[in-house]
Design a binder for these strands. Structure first.
Length: 246
DNA sequence: CCAGACGTTGTT
DNA sequence: GTCTGG
DNA sequence: CCAGACGTTGTT
DNA sequence: GTCTGG
């Protein structure tokens, strides 16, 4: 899990639920996919949700790195995640996620939606990173050709959306499934209870580690949906309508 | 020491 | 088969 | 996660 | 950047 999720709860409800604004081009989606810019809540910006690209790129990596999940069991020791785990944990708002199941009937995989029975939004445990392009190649021999230019080349601008791109990316932490999801898959996103969210965001790393357990299955449901959700580009409320299980 | 990897999922 | 794009 | 591409030369 | 492998 978690390679696709939903976030269609109206903006106003999300704002009261998470205590941040969701401006910045927020659009509800029934098909949030890797590579898309999606809202996350960070301690660094307590006022607003920030849109980041799903697929974490470590600051030292080349741009092609994109890690959409991080295993809870090892996240603290892995080089790709250790930094972010220590100081850049985030909440990934969602109101459901999809799971593809091969039911062994030769029909390939079938998508299921997993959510709370009342479709209320929740937070998945996430980590984020900021990535900046490598400094432009300076001429070797001695000082730079043009007046010994030190750094400060491209764009010093600290804000987002500057000329030289600063990529902000996130990943979703996974753990063992609960009883409901266990019937579909052997991994599940870490879902935080509302009273755990603050500790995930601002608690010390040791305390945060205790939060990465499977969320109880009570009050959750799973049901098959149309394969229309397979294509990442499609969207619309029909994607979460139940279909026959075959 | 330097070079090279650094991740998950799923599938075999 | 494997990587890229969505 | 799934879907879809996966390549070059030369020409417009 | 930092760890692992040789």
């Amino acid at each position: 899990m978690c390679g696709r999720y939903t976030l269609f709860t109206p903006e106003s409800k999300l704002e009261s639920r998470f205590g941040v604004t969701f401006g910045d081009g927020f659009e509800p989606s029934y098909n949030c996919a890797p590579g898309e810019a999606l809202p996350v809540v960070t301690a660094a910006d307590p006022e607003r949700a920030t849109r980041m690209t799903w697929g974490l790129t470590p600051s030292w990596a080349d741009e092609s790195f994109d890690l959409i999940n991080a295993r809870a069991e090892t996240v603290r020791e892995k080089r790709s995640f250790a930094d972010a785990y220590e100081s850049r944990r985030c909440l990934v708002p969602a109101d459901g996620f999809y799971e593809w199941v091969d039911e062994g009937d030769g029909a390939g995989t079938r998508p299921y939606r997993v959510a709370f029975e009342d479709d209320r939004p929740f937070a998945m445990a996430g980590l984020y990173e900021r990535w900046t392009p490598p400094k432009p190649e300076t001429t070797q021999t001695g000082l730079g050709a043009f007046g010994g230019g030190t750094d400060a080349g491209g764009d010093p601008g600290g804000g987002r959306g500057e000329g030289g791109r600063v990529r902000e990316t996130f990943t979703i932490v996974t753990t063992e499934p609960n009883d409901l999801v266990g019937d579909l898959h052997h991994r599940m996103a870490v879902i935080l209870a509302p009273d755990e969210e603050e500790r995930w965001l601002r608690g010390d790393p040791e305390d945060a580690a205790a939060l990465m357990d499977p969320y109880p299955a009570a009050e959750m449901e799973a049901y098959p949906v149309s394969t229309r959700v397979n294509a990442a580009g499609t969207d619309g409320p029909e994607l979460i309508e139940p279909v026959g299980a075959g």
